[in-house]
Each structure stands twice: as C-alpha cells, then as structure tokens.
Design a protein around this nucleic acid. Structure first.
Lengths: 143, 143
DNA sequence: ATATCTGTAACGACTATAGTTACAGTTAGC
DNA sequence: GCTAACTGTAACTATAGTCGTTACAGATAT
C-alpha cells in the first residue's frame, strides 16, 4: 500500500498550531518540526485552509493559525481535508460485464467502501484536536 | 492516495470461487472476469493462499478453490491478507525530536492507526463471503 | 510423454508523492 | 514608498509502488 502520510503531517502541524491560537506560525518553522521542506508544509496548509481548518496570512509577519478552537476541530474533518481517496480502490479496469460476478461486483464494493468510511468516521470524530494535543503534550500515547 | 485495488480484486475473485467449492478455477478464467492478466491474479491468489483462504493445485486440471466455506470467511480476513499497510502512513522522515510535538507525535499517531484499524475490523468482520456472494448474485448492492 | 496448470522472476510503463528551486504577490514596519 | 519577510504555486527531478507482460521452471492428470 502506497499509503498517505498527509494525514500524519496534518495532525502534526495542527498540534503545533494548537499551542497558541493567536500566533502566526511560519511554514519554515513548522517544516523543521516535521523534518521536511517548507513548501511541502505550505501545500498541506493549503488543503487545510480550503477546509476552513486554518487561516493563513501572507506578507511580513504572516503565517498560519487555527481557524477554530482545538476543541471544535475533530480528526475526521482533518482526514476528509487531506484524503481525496478511499481506503481501497475500485477496479482500475472495468470488470467483465458478461460475467455475473463482474457485472455486479462494483456496486457491492462501493457499498463496502462507504461502510468502511463510516467506521473510520466513527472512530476519528471522537478525537478532538485538543485531546490529541494533550496526548502529545503529556507524552502518553494511551488513547 | 494511491489506493490499493488488491482488496477489490480479492473480493471479486473470492466471489467467483464461492460459486463452487469443489471446482478448480484457472487463473486465466478468473483474470478474464476481473479483466486483467492471469499473472496478476496468481500473485493475488498467492497472498490469499498464504492466509489460508484458498488452496491451489499445480499441474494439469489444477487451479484454485476456497479453503473454507464461504460462510466461514469474513472480509476482515481478506483485508488483512492483502493489505500490508495501514490507512495512513507514519512520517517518512523522523520528526524533529528537539520539538516537544515532534518528540511524541509518532506514538500518538500509532495509537490512532490502531484505533482506525479496529473500526475497519468492526465493519468488515460483519460481512461473510457468503453474504457478499449473495449480494452479487442478486444484483442488489444494499448492505 | 505430453499437454496443462501454478509460481515466480524480470522488465518496462505508468502514476503518485516528496523534495527542491524559483518567483510572483502580499504585507508590516520603517 | 522601500524593503524585508512571508505565502502561494508552478515546474522539475528523484523515488517508489503497482500493473501488465513475457518467460520459464516445476508439478500433475491423462
């Protein structure tokens, strides 16, 4: 699986922002914590901005801050903001419609996708950014 | 997300096998339904074989059949068999340990991974191969 | 023996992502 | 107004993963 590390980075960056709601964090500063390039962080922040999770300000003394309280941001929103895809992909090529299985399998798989997504939503929407920040701050990884 | 289509193909192929427990299905025949190459199918069957979901027989008149009843195979097993990875990846590069967030974020993310996996398990383990086969056979995609 | 299968290695084509450089546009502070 | 400090984004390269394909060794029913 060529999994997405966007979500990990998003949680990391948002946890950084959660440290102070009124400070403008520079992409370069955030990048150093994530250990990557500032442009990579800005690309990610663009997605989070689009989802109204953060606000950015250009120009001198600019930067990015949370658009809302950490308590009012949950990880399901974060997941949706950075995951354009699904947990598993449907067939790349269309199955053989002359086969009774090939004919209907896609609809069934589509259903399964939605059900899995619901499962992830149920789990992730229970975590607020605040709670994640507290786990990180305390160094305890016990959910 | 460069999502995995292995799971889709696995469900498709297993649904084919579920049609008859005592027949040896050739990889070439399965490939035509999936609309792909026989080698691709054999690679997948190798994983399913390793997970003890199917049994293969080499030689003339060989092929693959289910190792168990469709009722006793659930989709969580299938998912585990073909998904080596997780829903989201941890950081590719190690975060900056001098940063209080970077120091602990990985442990927290690891926890989240496990919780998401549990969510997927709860959903998928409810589906038996039998029930999937019936959905496909009836052409109804209503879970 | 022979024809028919699987298992698997090897290779090329394709795609997605990460990292990097470069630069236009915005803004605070002087 | 200038300048320095930021963001946003395009463009390019490097890298890695997956898919499809060819090729062939090994197994087995007839």
């Amino acid at each position: 699986m060529a999994a997405n590390s966007q979500f990990s980075m998003a949680v990391h960056v948002l946890s950084m922002l959660a440290r102070s709601k009124d400070e403008n964090f520079k992409s370069d500063y955030l990048a150093k914590s994530v250990n990557t390039n500032a442009v990579v962080v800005r690309r990610l922040l663009g997605q989070l901005n689009h989802a109204r999770l953060v606000m950015s300000q250009t120009g001198a003394n600019g930067g990015t801050r949370l658009a809302r309280c950490p308590k009012e941001i949950n990880l399901w929103e974060v997941y949706k903001a950075v995951n354009c895809g699904e947990v598993f992909a449907l067939h790349a090529k269309e199955p053989n419609k002359d086969c009774p299985v090939g004919k209907n399998i896609e609809a069934v798989l589509c259903c399964l996708q939605k059900d899995i997504d619901k499962g992830i939503q149920e789990k992730l929407s229970k975590y607020s950014l605040q709670s994640v920040f507290e786990m990180v701050a305390q160094g305890t990884a016990s959910a």
